[in-house]
Design a protein around this nucleic acid. Structure first.
Lengths: 339, 339
DNA sequence: ATTGAATCTGACACCGGTGTCATAATGCGT
DNA sequence: ACGCATTATGACACCGGTGTCAGATTCAAT
């Protein structure tokens, strides 16, 4: 089984390789008869164009990079899944690049990624969507990029956003409507811009109900389960403990539930808990967590699609779209019993 | 900033491009003086070889594919992480390829993946490590491959194994030593070869303690949380309920815990539960799950490393290595109280 | 039949590297 | 100083596609 190149097809079909190339790329100015001959040859020889050669000729790699650093495996998998689907649609490949660096080192790392792998474009997922130095670097290097779930705005890019503040507002309101007045909050990782966005929604809801934010029951977490445990221990042992806890993601919320069990605080009877993200764990623990679901796959799919379109047509310069979150009610929340 | 090619370096250093190529690849027969000149030019111009051109010349893509279909996101992430690390070491890229197909469709899908992406090699993770048609196909197509955690043997390949039977035996023994005599078992997905391997370990341990396997408390799961719930409900509502449950993975074990809470069966006082895999959920629920940890990253790292070495040297033909599992004891197991 | 425009087709260089092989430069023994 | 083996270097074709442009063919209009 010798390999089938454009030359063998050309010979087989009795035309020049350029004509074969024209058929391959659906270029105009090929007579129907010729086109048919060439297509028959494709079938007959089972010809597959070599993407590497094509890449060399175009000075393109047909590879999109995906940059992430997220403690949630399920989030990463969902991002990948959406990105992959978009790549397949356009015959691109996806190169995943987990990266824990920040600042100068991050720039160096991405620079070396770009020069070694010759990416055609790059998708930034949180927390990288909001790293101004990184964005500036890509802009300066003229590397097309798209940002998933950024909070900051940037006039010349593709940004696929979610409205975390709104969603956090909504879920806090749910607790308020259930009668909770003393609601603790566990913040996320300070590098992630959604951290402040979610906190802002929480504060706004409290404010509208004329409740002051009590920083004694606001803990600094970092999205990890462990940080949730520490925060929960502090909050639940407070002299005036809250009747509800809003953790900035589901892992930390799960940790709150664990600490509550350890302290024999029953959920949701004595304590309501809400999380964020609708990670698998939210329904894998008992009671299940009330949380916010976001269409992560869809967001990433859109981001990569728009990015590839930008690369292919250099038409789209700016694209904004906001995807709404959805409140999911499970067993971890209940009305406050009036004592 | 015009782009730096091998030609510009050659011109700058005053040598031919072939000489530059020689320096680049550490080939012999370059005088120290010339080598230095060229290396200085590299630095000066910040030259990065174009992997696509190199790929074309070598008829290689420098891409390794990773095939998987696993319900556990954390498992996937760990596989990716090990594979990526190995790829980086050898300057390869990793192409991830989730795939839910089986049989004929699977072969077609992989065939098209190979011809479109020109992979240099492919890593098979469970359940693909044990699909005989797929392995036969790759062998016939002469595509180098490595198998992670296969159960079946195959004389001519790279196989990085774990001893699931032994580990299952060990964890079952732990329950037996705690005094449990009636131990339920929830099987995994029938497509995964580890499913039978783990069951075999369970049976062996029971046999050595002269306990017959009671198929009434052996459930057919599929590794999903949901299947674990269904199985747990059946098992725990049995007329003669078990005092311990061994679920083939941690998700199903977590589901058993949930069902137990719903039925007000306290864990571990009335019921011991063990899982398998040491997934994050094993320590994110309360009580934490006693389980088996396997060095997934390390296994995949080794698999990819050996695969790339095979590609580069066509030396290694066969490579076997078995990684042991490790028992992790948490709060979900306790000694059976003698009534 | 003739002409001009529109449509088709192929020769050839090129993308940025690597392999082959011939030739130039060096080292070494006598 | 000479000859010979060894090392160093470059010219050139090639990997498998694509862009450019000139030449060939077709077609409609006169």
């Amino acid at each position: 089984m010798e390999k089938v190149t454009i030359n063998s097809v050309a010979k087989y079909a009795g035309v020049s390789k350029k004509t074969v190339s024209r058929v391959l790329n659906n270029e105009p100015n090929v007579s129907p008869a010729t086109r048919e001959k060439v297509e028959a040859a494709f079938k007959e020889l089972d010809y597959r164009p070599n993407p590497i050669a094509r890449g060399l000729a175009h000075n393109r790699s047909f590879i999109i990079g995906c940059l992430y650093d997220n403690p949630s495996k399920s989030y990463i998998t969902r991002v990948q899944s959406g990105a992959l689907e978009a790549c397949q649609k356009y015959n691109y490949n996806l190169l995943i690049h987990p990266c824990e660096l920040r600042g100068e080192e991050l720039i160096d790392n991405v620079a070396s990624l770009l020069s070694t792998s010759r990416l055609d474009g790059i998708v930034l997922t949180p927390p990288f969507s909001d790293q101004p130095e990184l964005v500036a670097f890509l802009k300066q290097k003229q590397i097309p990029y798209a940002r998933v779930a950024p909070v900051t705005l940037d006039d010349e890019s593709i940004s696929i956003r979610s409205n975390d503040t709104q969603a956090a507002y909504q879920i806090t309101n749910l607790l308020l409507e259930l009668g909770h007045k003393r609601i603790a909050f566990i913040k996320g990782h300070p590098d992630h811009s959604v951290t402040e966005a979610r906190f802002a929604g929480y504060k706004q809801a409290l404010k509208e109900h004329q409740i002051d934010v009590d920083l004694e029951i606001v803990a600094e977490g970092n999205f990890s389960y462990h940080s949730g445990e520490d925060s929960a221990r502090r909050i639940l042992n407070h002299a005036k403990p809250p009747s509800a806890v809003f953790a900035s993601n589901d892992y930390m919320a799960a940790a709150v539930l664990k600490v509550a069990s350890q302290l024999s605080i029953s959920v949701p009877e004595q304590l309501s808990i809400v999380g964020f993200d609708n990670a698998p764990i939210a329904r894998h623990i008992w009671p299940g967590l009330t949380t916010i679901a976001q269409p992560v796959e869809e967001m990433t799919y859109t981001a990569v699609s728009k990015l590839v379109e930008k690369i292919n047509t250099s038409d789209i310069d700016i694209y904004y779209e906001t995807f709404p979150g959805k409140l999911i009610t499970r067993e971890s929340t209940a009305a406050l019993k009036t004592k």
